[in-house]
């Protein structure tokens, strides 16, 4: 977990202060990579208490393809509340793009289903990617994706995941993203694997 604390320290010491969209102001660095070996355990931060239930429910909700906060509310998760409209809608955010990326001919692509099938049938592929940055639909999203895409890699029966995040609220947001690799690993069966988030 030291790598996370090192990042916080790097931002505090080398970061440049600037204004931002929210009006709060940030101290920022650009370009950072962290790597966790999941054989050593699950990278859930220990230096502050994390609400694991919210993390898991959010991930399950992404995977369901839903973009309405109803499921989250039913399960006591409020992290998306402030972006939803009066009907609980968020626009075509993560879940929609992961499971139902729209095509110009009116069809939809299930990227999750596809990546699972490809990992099994063609593990050496360099195209195991799920992306949420659908350029044509960004303007309709309550919030454009922060964790923009993830890529998987199989070597020696081990599944690795690289998560790319364009914008990383290092204190509140980053600790939430450790669930994705773990989840897909469980779908695929007992492997050990690595996860390495890249932050923009």
């Amino acid at each position: 977990m030291r790598v996370y604390l090192d990042l916080l320290e790097r931002i505090l010491e080398e970061g440049i202060d600037r204004g931002d969209r929210t009006g709060t102001g940030t101290r920022a660095v650009f370009g950072h990579q962290m790597r966790f070996d999941l054989a050593d355990g699950f990278p859930l931060l220990t230096t502050k208490k994390l609400h694991l239930k919210s993390i898991v429910h959010e991930l399950l909700w992404f995977l369901s393809g839903s973009t309405n906060i109803a499921y989250l509310k039913e399960n006591g998760v409020s992290i998306w509340d402030e972006w939803a409209d009066e009907h609980g809608q968020l626009g075509p955010v993560y879940g929609h793009q992961w499971r139902n990326w729209p095509t110009p001919d009116g069809g939809h692509i299930d990227q999750i289903g596809r990546v699972l099938a490809d990992i099994k049938s063609n593990p050496e592929s360099r195209r195991h990617i799920v992306s949420a940055w659908n350029v044509a639909e960004i303007q309709n999203m309550a919030l454009p994706p922060c964790h923009v895409l993830f890529q998987f890699h199989v070597a020696d029966g081990k599944l690795s995941c690289m998560l790319t995040q364009r914008s990383a609220d290092t204190f509140l947001g980053v600790p939430f993203f450790s669930g994705i690799a773990k989840w897909i690993d469980e779908l695929l069966g007992p492997h050990s694997f690595r996860s390495s988030p890249v932050l923009g």
């Binding site: 931002d20 969209r21 110009p104 990227q111 940055w133 350029v135 923009v148």
Partner: peptide
Amino acid sequence: PTSRRMLFHGWNVA
């Protein structure tokens, strides 16, 4: 220029 959304890419899933 302080935007955190300045990116482009070619991975059009469709």
